[in-house]
Design a protein around this nucleic acid. Structure first.
Lengths: 102, 102
DNA sequence: GCCTTAGTTCCATCAATCTCGAACTATTGG
DNA sequence: CCAATAGTTCGAGATTGATGGAACTAAGGC
């Protein structure tokens, strides 16, 4: 089951969100999730070892950016766009709009 | 003179900007600058030692968030709002709008 | 039951970052 | 020229964060 720890929207902290997004690997993951809607961890690993990818997903989860649900043996991840936008209006949109510019 | 190194708007990097904003001290500085227009380093030190404050201003400068100009013996800092908004539309506004929520 | 798959957790290592004191630099004032 | 002011730069210590290997866990398939 999806017994992973996800913060509630009221617990989101701006600094944590910004820190989660300030890493290239995680930013890439967030962009791909934004483009594809949802994906498994493995689909976004970019050739990195599992433990690294898992670490990054954890940071994203704990910041409130990503929700992970267990689906059989794979873990599906998706952006918590609505909740994020309710708490920090326009923030994620601005980050995603900066796409391609580094 | 203001011989400090400031990146041009075309050199701004999203990750660097987000990292600069992901620290509580710097976020506080940015918010105060947004509220007051401009201020000297010392006016925003919050009781911290000079070297710490100077470090944070350097991070902000190098990310492109702040422009520092020397004015006699004091250094005046201001947000590079227009340039930032041109490069990352809505980003700074979203961060500042999240004010008071942590 | 046993093996595979998909991740997580644990651990160690290494690189960045934050903090702060001390020394240095530039500008103004006496 | 000497002192004071406002920051910067340097250097050390402590914390945080990234990376990746190895062992562990949960769910399905044979």
């Amino acid at each position: 089951m999806a017994a992973m720890k996800h913060p509630e929207a009221s617990e989101f902290r701006l600094e944590k969100v910004l820190h989660a997004l300030s890493d290239g690997v995680r930013l890439g993951i967030v962009r791909q999730l934004a483009a594809e809607g949802e994906a498994s961890c493995g689909a976004l690993d970019g050739g990195r070892p599992k433990s690294s990818v898992s670490h990054h997903f954890r940071v994203l989860r704990e910041a409130g950016l990503v929700r992970t649900t267990t689906f059989g043996v794979t873990h599906m991840n998706s952006l918590r766009r609505a909740e994020l936008d309710a708490r920090f209006p326009g923030l994620l949109a601005a980050v995603l709009a900066a796409e391609g510019q580094g």
